[in-house]
């Protein structure tokens, strides 16, 4: 495994290099803000980000060494968590707002026109505020995102031969990224006790992000069922795959 021969510092450098570019909506949200207009903008953006996410995953050291089936499975399980963590990272400097893209920054009120969205919006704002309090560093952020990817599903494909090897690789990749996170935290100049506390606080936020992602999937599924917004291609495929895994 390539990640096994990299030092934590080298691994973080590679993960930072893998970061996707900023994604722009490239057009104004239609006014007035209606449920359909906002959802159309959010799903357009998600579609673009998903394509970048695949490139990102392929650049994370070790990912392409997994079986293709496991690569597919991991991404299908974690895509909304990865999108949401990216959203939180971008929104850290915009208290009370969510920066979906540099040209789409929404306040709670603007998001409230979408039925059922306020609850998710508030949870996203709360998690973002927590990252703000913790003064999340970029090195820590990229490690958390890679951890989400490799930790997205324990139940990978069959447990025989090549597939078993792939699952063992996922566990080793998780260990490598965890070591990288520990290294990133150690740079902050905290005491041993404070470093352990910070590590725990950061990792505990991942369970909130998983919860948020599940809420978001349910919400998007509901929007699809109500025909509020048409979903196409990759986003539709990722939503359907998540619903299938969930069921």
């Amino acid at each position: 495994l390539v990640s096994a021969v990299l030092s934590p510092q080298e691994l973080i450098s590679r993960i930072i290099e893998a970061e996707p570019p900023e994604t722009y909506l490239m057009k104004d949200v239609k006014r007035p803000f209606t449920e359909a207009n906002v959802m159309m903008s959010l799903t357009n953006l998600a579609d673009k980000e998903l394509v970048h996410m695949i490139t990102w995953a392929k650049k994370i050291p070790g990912f392409v060494e997994l079986s293709l089936l496991d690569q597919v499975h991991l991404l299908e399980c974690c895509w909304l968590e990865v999108l949401m963590l990216g959203l939180m990272w971008r929104s850290v400097d915009h208290p009370g707002k969510l920066m979906f893209s540099p040209d789409l920054i929404l306040s709670r009120d603007e998001g409230s026109c979408v039925q059922g969205f306020v609850e998710i919006f508030d949870m996203l704002l709360a998690a973002t505020a927590r990252f703000r309090e913790l003064q999340l560093q970029k090195e820590e952020y990229v490690c958390l995102k890679a951890l989400i990817l490799f930790n997205s599903n324990l139940c990978l494909s069959s447990s025989e031969g090549e597939e078993l090897q792939s699952r063992t690789k996922v566990m080793r990749l998780l260990d490598s990224v965890t070591d990288a996170l520990v290294w990133a935290i150690s740079k902050t100049g905290l005491s041993f006790q404070q470093r352990s506390t910070r590590q725990a606080r950061l990792l505990m936020l991942l369970s909130h992000i998983r919860h948020l992602s599940n809420k978001g999937i349910d919400h998007l599924h509901c929007m699809k069922m109500r025909n509020v917004v048409p979903l196409y291609d990759l986003l539709l495929e990722m939503l359907d795959a998540h619903i299938m895994h969930g069921s």
Partner: peptide, 24 residues
């Protein structure tokens, strides 16, 4: 790998050695 899996866009993008951004 099932036929259904092979037809997935995600599957194709992961397998392609060129950037998925170029394909999108």
């Amino acid at each position: 790998t099932s036929l259904k899996e092979k037809h997935k866009i995600l599957h194709r993008l992961l397998q392609n050695s060129t950037s998925p951004v170029d394909l999108a």
